[in-house]
Amino acid sequence: MIFENALVLGPEGLSAQSLAVLDGVICDETDARSFDLSGYWIMPGLIDVHGDGFERHLAPRRGALRDLGQGLMSADAELAANGITTATLAQFYSWEGGMRGPEFARRFLEALKTADLLTDTRVQLRFETHLLADYSAFEELVAEFDVPYVVFNDHIPHDALAKGKRPPRHTGQALKSGRSPEAHLTLLQELHGRSEQVPEALKALAARLTARGVRLGSHDDDTPDVRAGFQAMGIAISEFPESLETAEAANANGAEVILGAPNVVRGGSHSGKVSAAEVIAAGHCHALASDYHYPALKQAVFRLVDDGVLTLEKAWSLVSSGPAKLLGLTDRGTLEEGQRADLVILNPETRRIEATLVNGQFSHLTGGVAARFLG
């Protein structure tokens, strides 16, 4: 295919040029059918480094969906409609149980392994650091499914437990986990009581995973000291740092910082943490993640542009070339010759993505672009 008369996004912004695709790769020219895309923009495909919006497709109601493969196909369609050509599905391995428990993590990985998806779909396992008894089983799971990316979480409500109190929303979380409130509280107290053992155990686990070539990150770093501790373990990705100072410290120490696109779209954190736009304006962000809402990636780009925080090319790099570099994917993220033909065709008037191509194949096609291709 040859796309003619569109504006194509490059490092210096939008420019009028033709773009050819041959055998799934962007090339200089090819003898093929051409399509007039005047009035449209062609942009690099969006690369999502962390998203758990797929959960609602796997369980629209608790326990109601048994065929995870069909749920993943539904998530695939949503990814494509939002211009996401490479997706990283962030699956929990947590004491929280249910869809976030170890058993479901295995079911999810088994389903993903055999799913027929159009989006280039990868996995990130989010491991709760205080599950000391699960370290060996977790490592075996990572090895069995060749998991490329692990992020460490600590969602235990330590403050409440240290004061001998029941954590907020405890009963609801217990029911989601399939435990009684009393059993759930006992588990949390036991995990909290092992806190002093975690740093050394985690350091050793991180070293073993690094030796396997697994990419490692930390989640919700709340202080520069916490981030420095992870950095000392070789954990060089900081997801959603909670303050400007933490993001600044992470960046200064060579870590790559991921922020949530929904935070940008909302104009601030829903939980009272640092504004992502503030961190981006300070130059401490390498990639945006969809987090819990896939449409937020594209929305965040235009919010940053409309608010004058970044130019279009700089903002789009946070959802394309920046994430590609962070994930070690050298074959995508830009529209240069020789790169994979992962791209989106966008209507600049409506800002709707009307076509998504993954490796040169359509995963999404609608609206005026569909009419031009099918006419």
Score class of each variant (00 low, 15 high):
96 E>I: 11
106 R>D: 09
99 M>Q: 14
66 R>A: 12
139 E>Y: 00
96 E>K: 08
88 T>M: 08
140 E>V: 01
97 G>T: 03
141 L>Y: 02
125 L>E: 04
100 R>P: 00
66 R>C: 08
75 A>G: 02
94 S>R: 03
135 Y>W: 00
110 E>D: 13
109 L>P: 07
87 A>V: 08
135 Y>L: 01
101 G>V: 03
98 G>R: 13
84 I>S: 06
105 A>N: 11
142 V>W: 04
119 T>Q: 15
113 K>R: 14
72 L>E: 15
130 H>K: 05
132 L>H: 08
143 A>I: 07
79 L>W: 01
134 D>C: 00
110 E>Y: 09
83 G>D: 11
69 G>E: 14
72 L>D: 08
130 H>N: 15
137 A>V: 01
89 L>E: 07
64 A>H: 04
84 I>A: 01
64 A>Q: 15
92 F>W: 12
102 P>E: 07
74 S>W: 07
120 D>I: 08
97 G>K: 09
66 R>T: 13
105 A>D: 09
92 F>K: 14
70 Q>G: 04
78 E>V: 12
123 V>D: 10
133 A>V: 06
134 D>H: 03
120 D>S: 10
111 A>L: 08
76 D>G: 02
68 L>E: 05
86 T>K: 06
70 Q>N: 04
112 L>F: 13
128 E>I: 02
126 R>M: 07
107 R>D: 09
138 F>S: 02
131 L>K: 02
91 Q>T: 04
88 T>G: 09
120 D>F: 07
85 T>R: 03
140 E>G: 02
133 A>G: 00
100 R>D: 00
91 Q>M: 11
105 A>W: 13
83 G>H: 08
114 T>K: 11
98 G>D: 07
86 T>C: 09
142 V>H: 02
116 D>P: 12
81 A>V: 08
111 A>I: 05
114 T>N: 07
133 A>C: 07
85 T>M: 03
108 F>R: 09
140 E>P: 03
66 R>Q: 15
136 S>N: 02
91 Q>A: 08
77 A>Y: 00
84 I>G: 06
75 A>Q: 00
106 R>T: 04
112 L>K: 11
79 L>Q: 09
143 A>M: 15
137 A>F: 01
85 T>P: 04
73 M>C: 15
117 L>D: 11
91 Q>V: 07
124 Q>M: 10
134 D>T: 03
115 A>P: 13
85 T>H: 03
111 A>T: 06
127 F>S: 11
74 S>R: 11
81 A>T: 10
